[in-house]
Design a protein around this nucleic acid. Structure first.
Lengths: 182, 182
DNA sequence: TTTATCATATATCGGTTTGATATATTTGTC
DNA sequence: GACAAATATATCAAACCGATATATGATAAA
């Protein structure tokens, strides 16, 4: 079967925006993409080497003053592979929410435990919403650019979902209070 | 550091409800838990063997008519480990949405590509919502039971989020139409 | 001025998990 | 009776994460 490795396309996608280093890619994954995708050094650097061997990216040594720095760029071949992947239907959208796992098995620790997890989750959601709203505001100025349009849509997705999470938190807390007072 | 392997606690959690086989656990992961957690045979069976060696579960051969069948039960030691984990704060809640990834890098394929992915996503969300609403309706009858209360809260979470996804789909499609007609 | 800390930058390793596959029996259907 | 589907256990390569090692440059505090 064809290449199904996701990290390949994540890195090609980032390089389709602009050339950058592995370190910068990690930063993007930890900031811009963090709401819907992750990635570790342990998969970034080996993948970069593999993509170079396949001719999908080129490596350029842009070190200065002894500070090692390898800048990667996407090739035509790499762009073709990216476009081919983008056109294919999505294989899997996946949630891995430990909070829900602990809530689901929470009958072992009682409703107080559930309540605590919900409250911690609520706080985290509020923080994320602040960040996402800032992103949306900043992006509003650059919406003539196509890349930013796509970015904007994903940020909007994040805002919608975190708002829904907060709504659920309020309702779940209310529900638990009702259950426990009886 | 202590054990951070998630599958241990997923299986212990399932066994805290009732004894079952590895095959049944996989089915639970594919139905009840599928909205917030996954799991494959490749991690279920080895983990089960490891948990038995650690004394956290016991294995009983309940084969009949030559059909192999190994039923697992949780021990007191296993229950302690589960309760300890449940009390700890959540380490990570994670989304891995390929749809958003393809949307984010979609400037390579234009807005038509984005539109297609959103529409496919929308259909999938509608289907999931039907299933979740059925779950919620069925669960309504058993809400005296604590295990079902916790289950109910996670289903409600799913419903809230999928409704938010659908709302986002409508708005994103509207937004794209506005952008492209200009 | 020296020292500590943080940011930049590449790279690897062990352990966890996925996805696919192999094997074998029973049950249900045409 | 033949065939497909469900039940059931198990393994393997490949993918991926989290932590760590290493080293330099910049910045701030002492």
């Amino acid at each position: 079967m064809a290449n199904t490795k996701k990290m390949d396309y994540v890195l090609l996608g980032l390089l389709s925006h602009e050339p950058m280093t592995g370190y910068e890619m990690k930063k993007r994954l930890d900031t811009t993409l963090r709401f819907f995708w992750g990635g570790s050094y342990g998969s970034i650097y080996p993948t970069l080497n593999q993509l170079e061997k396949e001719g999908k990216v080129t490596k350029e040594d842009t070190s200065s003053n002894g500070r090692e720095k390898l800048s990667y760029s996407i090739t035509d071949c790499g762009k073709d592979a990216l476009i081919e992947w983008l056109a294919k239907p999505v294989e899997k959208d996946e949630l891995r929410y430990e909070t829900l796992l602990k809530l689901f098995f929470g009958n072992e620790t009682g409703m107080e435990g559930a309540m605590e997890h919900i409250e911690r989750f609520e706080e985290k959601c509020k923080d994320e919403l602040v960040v996402l709203n800032m992103f949306a505001e900043n992006l509003g100025q650059y919406l003539e650019d196509d890349t930013h349009k796509h970015y904007y849509l994903t940020v909007k997705f994040g805002i919608k979902t975190y708002e829904a999470y907060l709504e659920w938190c309020r309702e779940a807390k209310e529900q638990i209070k009702e259950w426990t007072k009886k």
